[in-house]
Design a protein around this nucleic acid. Structure first.
Lengths: 345, 345
DNA sequence: TTCCTTTATGCAATCGTATGCGGTAATTCG
DNA sequence: CGAATTACCGCATACGATTGCATAAAGGAA
């Protein structure tokens, strides 16, 4: 085959097309945009232009439009950790929606850090996009407002705690689900020493889930043992570490709730590594219901979220605003959670 | 807090900064670019400009530079399936490298389809980027050449089968690893009826791995039983289906090799669902060594690749070309694979 | 003083596309 | 038959930043 030697051939522009079709560049633009701006185009001219486009292999340069402040045909998405299966269906849903509208998606990882999230914000300010989908852990409403003002894009977020008048928000009713699940753990399964693997207080999700957990204990009249609270970083490794601390206690918990499945799985591994048994020695309850939850043995009992649905809702919300189908105040969509009882409890 | 009411405040441009600092827009550009183009800038002027930048909160509009054909500060990455854990470390590695250079990454899923891959190519032609990282399954060298010519970006790919004179390629020595692993399966573990879960012939990776598998059988003098070859689509579900077919055979295989871990895990699940036992009834061998491979029970014996390393190498190769540190012919980097013996065989 | 550097800054073109406005020819109407 | 539409198309500008070239002031040498 013929391979390119020239370092970079100049791109085919509208002007090239115009020259070949013997029309002006504006005419080419009008033919291609299709949008009827009141100026009609002769059928024969249209043909010539389309032919020229075909023979030259013309593709529009999207940067030009972006510069002019038109549509960018680009979405930006910020997630905490692309390696966490929980986010995959969300990313997929967003990308699928994007593809149907011929949009591209820029994805950024934040590693749950504030620096990562701020970097994303600044990146989007430098390169404004039509729609922004966020899974923020640290961003304040002021940050999000800045995003909105500086980029003019439509914004949708995941997270109970986001409450911006112009941002659509999706969230699971995790508090309710946790309250029910822990209560079930206590009443039906008879556990009274329950360990909690959470995250540092800087995550409002973590704080909320911790609150729900505490509330369940309170309602059951179970005292709080500080040694039964450990901190992880959402990863399976950190779940293992936390569990190891629990197991070295003089009186380890009989059940452990981890606020995400990755940590729960790590915790289960740690239990089994000491020769102990799940759920007989220690029961484990997770949160998210990622695919590996059904792969581990025993299968993980967990609280399911619906990330596909969440992604779909966020993408829809954003596109509705992009296409002007909705322009009112920020909407809040609640997606239910539900307990999935398997074998680890 | 103060929330935005204005739909879209006009962005802060260099001209605004220039006005505030009482200099021309070109001067602002020179101060900010920092690059010494032979034209010096007075220290006092520089101060004034930086101050103005600060007070106005100026951020450059990256589209302007992109339009001028300058650097775009953007990488495009194409992967088959963001939900396959195998790709995560690769994506992460690329994104980490990108971040250190202040680059953003656009990610596209292709779902292993040719349409998806073509859509990516066209998307990148419309929006050229500095660097392109591909995990191609269907793209021909002509397609990749077009990418190169039309965008002028640096290209790195994953995959033995890509052989373009200007594209850097990373690949694992999967043939060798498979040959060894299957031989081991035969000699050390005594298996002679080995099932193969592959993919359709349109994937060259699939064909190559199938070839290595056949070669191992040939070397061991084992005949080929057509009923022991099943086709999947890389997903765990498809692995389960394939295994079900095997199990319904009058004489099922005693071992099954799946060309990726996801299918292997699905296959194991299928075995266990029928009450049978892995590895005693059916041994399962996978490929990739994704994290869930150590979470399942029995733990999956598999051939490990090094996706982090692969991503790192590709990102490096691309950035070396972007920054002009390398500009020679396409390089080929081999990353070793190795058998990880666990419990499923 | 005159001429020539050196230093510091501004002007203007450019990238590719969209679009308001003006222009020309053909057609219709009174 | 002259005037008013209508149908069609091109000119020129704008978007925001980079950059070659011109310009202006200051300083040094002759």
């Amino acid at each position: 085959m013929q391979q390119s030697d020239s370092p970079r051939k100049r791109a085919v522009t509208m002007r090239d097309v115009a020259k070949l079709a013997n029309v002006s560049q504006s005419t080419v633009s009008r033919v291609l945009s299709g949008a009827d701006d009141g100026i009609p185009i002769g059928e024969e001219t249209r043909q010539r232009v389309m032919e020229a486009v075909e023979t030259l292999g013309y593709y529009p340069n999207l940067y030009a439009g972006s510069l002019r402040g038109q549509k960018t045909f680009m979405l930006a998405m910020m997630v905490a950790d692309i390696a966490n299966p929980f986010y995959h269906p969300m990313v997929r849903a967003v990308q699928d929606a994007a593809r149907t509208h011929r949009y591209d998606v820029m994805i950024a990882n934040t590693d749950h850090t504030r620096e990562g999230e701020m970097a994303f914000v600044e990146s989007v300010i430098r390169r404004p996009v039509d729609g922004i989908i966020l899974v923020p852990y640290h961003l304040t409403e002021a940050d999000i407002d800045r995003l909105l003002v500086r980029t003019g894009g439509a914004v949708a977020t995941l997270g109970q705690h986001i409450n911006h008048p112009q941002v659509d928000t999706v969230y699971g009713d995790d508090e309710h689900a946790i309250l029910e699940a822990i209560t079930w753990l206590i009443r039906e399964r008879g556990h009274r020493r329950i360990g909690f693997i959470g995250v540092t207080g800087s995550f409002s999700v973590g704080a909320r889930r911790r609150g729900a957990f505490l509330e369940a204990l309170r309602q059951a009249g179970i005292p709080i043992y500080p040694e039964l609270f450990e901190i992880g970083d959402w990863s399976s490794e950190s779940g293992g570490h936390a569990m190891n601390v629990f197991l070295s206690l003089p009186k380890p918990p009989t059940a452990v709730f981890a606020i995400n499945d990755l940590m729960a799985i790590g915790a289960m591994e740690a239990v089994q590594k000491t020769g102990r048994c799940v759920p007989d020695d220690v029961a484990v309850l997770g949160f998210d219901d990622i695919p590996p939850a059904t792969w581990v043995r025993p299968r993980l009992t967990t609280i399911a979220q619906h990330p596909t649905e969440m992604g779909r809702v966020m993408a829809n919300a954003v596109f509705e605003r992009i296409f002007g189908k909705y322009s009112g105040p920020g909407r809040r969509f609640e997606v239910p959670c539900r307990l999935i009882v398997r074998e680890s409890v």
